[in-house]
């Protein structure tokens, strides 16, 4: 089997050892079966086990291996190795505190996600089987429920960089709209009240970096627009 060397430039930072972060030039030997960036990272990890990154399912479902790849956020497991210009520059997701190398502290991100109450609120007694929806009602949830919370979108959003403590961010707002769009949910008004805020919702300036980077091809900007339309429909 033919092998070739892939050049990397990786952000390294071990707070126990390093005074400040630095970029490390390193190469990995990959063979023709190594199709995705994550495959090459696995090779790299075998060579230098101190390189840290998160990964789990290796097929774009868990959202663990989000990182900044050649300047653009994405999932290592979904990024074709051949599509990348070398040296492949890998950095942690921008705007979040770095724990070590490519591993970031996502507390802030999940705090915003939890703030929108990402679960169905329905106070009716549960039916014997499931709460039913018509196919049309179910259709409205497409493009919303698929989010895997990898944080690629929120950490590419300048508004989230400047106000991560106050702006819900594209991922959180997409999830918020997922429950606003759900006909089984009964907390629409409370959800809208919770979002009607100059920081929480209206920090979105329609930059659309979120749409550009989403590895699942979702459109948080459209969801945010729909939330604004709902607020307008309620107020006008």
């Amino acid at each position: 089997m033919t092998t070739r060397a892939v050049q990397f430039r990786i952000y390294r930072y071990d707070p126990d050892k390093d005074e400040r972060p630095y970029m490390q030039d390193i190469s990995a030997e990959v063979d023709s079966n190594d199709r995705k960036l994550l495959d090459a990272l696995t090779r790299l990890k075998a060579r230098d086990e101190t390189i840290s990154y998160r990964r789990s399912c290796r097929e774009g479902v868990c959202g663990s291996d989000a990182m900044n790849i050649n300047g653009k956020n994405g999932l290592a497991c979904l990024t074709e190795l051949d599509s990348l210009k070398e040296p492949i520059v890998l950095k942690p997701l921008p705007g979040l505190p770095v724990i070590r190398d490519l591993v970031v502290d996502m507390t802030q991100f999940f705090r915003q996600y939890h703030s929108i109450k990402p679960y169905l609120v329905n106070n009716d007694p549960p039916p014997e089987r499931e709460r039913l929806q018509t196919p049309e009602e179910r259709e409205e949830l497409n493009g919303l429920y698929e989010c895997i919370l990898c944080a690629c979108c929120s950490t590419s959003c300048p508004s989230f960089w400047w106000n991560p403590d106050k702006f819900v961010g594209p991922a959180g707002l997409l999830a918020a709209y997922r429950f606003l769009a759900d006909t089984r949910d009964q907390a629409t008004n409370e959800r809208l009240d919770n979002l009607e805020d100059p920081y929480r919702l209206f920090r979105c300036h329609t930059i659309m970096n979120c749409v550009d980077v989403c590895p699942k091809g979702l459109n948080p900007t459209r969801a945010i627009g729909n939330i604004r339309d709902m607020l307008a429909a309620r107020a006008v």
């Binding site: 919770n194 009607e196 805020d197 209206f202 307008a232 107020a235």
Partner: peptide, 9 residues
């Protein structure tokens, strides 16, 4: 947070 304005603007 929770100033409850923004829509009008």
């Amino acid at each position: 947070v929770g100033a409850h304005y923004g829509l009008k603007d």
